[in-house]
Design a protein around this nucleic acid. Structure first.
Lengths: 194, 194
DNA sequence: AGAATATATGAAGTTTTCTTCAAATTTGGA
DNA sequence: TCCAAATTTGAAGAAAACTTCATATATTCT
């Protein structure tokens, strides 16, 4: 479909030129359509970028939500593993998209969009953690928030660096170790304070 | 100094308008000088952004390096604590700058700059870890890399979200728990494999 | 003070980018 | 086949941004 071609082109231009040098003509050209066509589907440049971002966020969050839902009731270690894996897979499925989009996320009035996506992710994680078979961690909100931020931030850092996909396994392993350790430590702290 | 005013103005414009709507006129206006003056000091817009970024990276990395150097020979838990604290303090010292700069970092040919900064940070951490009194973690390179990425990414995520500075304490606490747990777990894995 | 040097100004030229719209093309049904 | 609706085109107008440079102001030194 034309719209998909435009989406794809936006990503490509973002990757090869950066958001500062992204302009509608370039996107249209890359998409193999004319500028006019682009404006048929998006009222202006900002709307285009917004749509591309929205699309990607939805994909990531829903992946996390599904993973959390599928892992209610298991131990925290398995939970850590599951979330890390889900997030990493979702990212890998469109690794180029990921790094490109971080360039525009903050440009737009996308704060709310991102905030909402985070919220959903955090809630899914908190809900899952509360069902842990080996005891729930302390402050659910805080732990869920930190966990998501750590996964999100670490992965992003690696992607931006353009690490080879081969490194993905290493990242997953280390992240899993870290998240597991964190959740265990959280429970320990919890017990210590009680 | 004029140059400092321009630096500061760049950050401000970046924050209030985003990199896409950042232009030399706006920066000059905000700095209280004329466009001509700006071009007296920077050959073009790109050079300006590059300089601002460079300045900031140097500040952050050197803070990490100092912290690492000051903590050679202590236990890994203390190390985790030290690095987290150093990084967070450096960021906090110019919290606005931090989030603003991530907007342009990838725009420029700044890959090398960032790569170099990361390199230095990782090396400092690896060097410190290798002197741990309670046993060095497994693959020093990988652990240092992951640790830095996790701290960097997590902090960035929080900053971009515009969390109130009050939340800084909570972030520091959680990050410390996480990094400590990670380093302990790394050592445990090391022993298990040996 | 006066000359020499350094710094600042901002209007104007050039280039880039955004967006529109009348005309051309394609699509799908009667 | 023929028509009407949907889609596409890209040249061109309008707006925004980059950069230059001749002129003006300030600073420093003798």
């Amino acid at each position: 479909m034309t719209v998909d071609a435009i989406f794809e082109a936006t990503i490509q231009v973002l990757l090869s030129h950066g958001s500062m040098r992204l302009n509608t003509t370039r996107v249209a050209l890359r998409a193999g359509v004319s500028v006019g066509t682009l404006y048929q589907y998006f009222p202006n440049k900002q709307a285009l970028l917004f749509a591309v971002l929205e699309r990607h966020l939805e994909m990531i969050v829903s992946a996390v939500e599904v993973a959390c839902h599928d892992h209610h009731g298991v131990g925290t270690e398995a939970m850590a593993e599951a979330v890390v894996k889900a997030y990493l897979q979702a990212k890998a499925k469109q690794s180029d998209v990921s790094s490109a989009l971080n360039l525009i996320a903050v440009e737009l009035d996308a704060r709310n969009l991102i905030e909402a996506a985070n919220q959903r992710g955090e809630e899914a994680i908190a809900a899952m953690l509360s069902t842990a078979s080996d005891g729930r961690p302390g402050d659910l909100q805080v732990v869920a928030q930190t966990l998501l931020a750590a996964i999100y931030g670490t992965v992003r850092t690696f992607y931006e660096r353009g690490s080879p996909p081969a490194a993905g396994d290493k990242v997953e392993k280390q992240l899993t170790v870290m998240c597991r350790a964190y959740l265990s430590a959280s429970r320990r702290e919890e017990r210590a304070q009680a």
